[in-house]
Amino acid sequence: MNSIIEINNLKKIYSNGNHALNGININIEKGKFFGLLGPNGAGKTTTIGILTGLVNLTSGKIKVNGLDIIKDYKKTRKMIGLSPQEINLDVFFTIRELLIFQGGYYGLSIKESKKRVDKILFDLGLEEKAYSKARELSGGMKRRVQIAKALIHDPEIIILDEPTAGVDIELRHLLWDSLREMNEKHDKTLLLTTHYIEEAENLCDEVAIIDDGKIIAQGSPKDLIANDGESLINITVDNWDSSLLPNFTSNFQDNIVTIKSKNSDKDTPYIINKITDANISINKLDIRKANLEDVFIKLTGKKLTDD
């Protein structure tokens, strides 16, 4: 029991009657890179809002490091740094000033805060924009400032709500690298929401899939895929003998055999051997590995993203 965040039967009904969360349970272990994956409107931001104190919960309990987020809010909030989904930057002050204040809210002196801010601006490649105001920044730069906000007071837990929404691929990979570094090198616990499959698979040790205010699966991306995902092994051959692979579901059409596999890494060599032993020549081999999208489709019957 080394949970740093424990969410227990959390429910949220908004004042307009929207049932955003229908009793979710999540345990996040210290040091984990945890992903909350779900489609638009699933309840990701609501969960984070409650955890950070922005949204009042309807019922349920959340503990951070064993402390109740409502009773001990001052302590738990200091342990958390949040990068909000929506850009919310004051246009009155410069980026540097804003971030210095941000550190101050979390108990740093102005002097300490300045030091941290200058380092983080440099790390995130924003040092040239330190004295600009938010209006003068591009979308990707604003996104980086949002992320910087979560880091100034060097919290144990870093929560990032869609940190790579609307940024180009280059920046996305750059951000991934720095997030991974925070997790691995600096032992931070990260909680990230996303609806990018690739992001969750690439970064997270553990993922909870949320849909319609319910957690429908939780585990490492690998286990989730192993349990509920199926890879497709497509082999182009000249002729086919349908009795060759009795243990697999397969389908032959237009000279292509499509074989479903729970574990393509293990099954592929076995299948190739079988085929070559039967003197059937293989013209092309193509494996579409299962991903979290497949898991999501399997569990909900719908697609995660609309594209």
């Binding site: 922005l54 001052k74 909030r77 919310n88 809210y105």
Partner: peptide, 18 residues
């Protein structure tokens, strides 16, 4: 009003202050 309009009031609301 400014903090609400630009939404940075959220930063105040999640800060460890009463």
């Amino acid at each position: 009003m400014q903090a609400k309009y630009l939404k940075f009031i959220d930063d105040y609301l999640i800060a460890p202050v009463s």
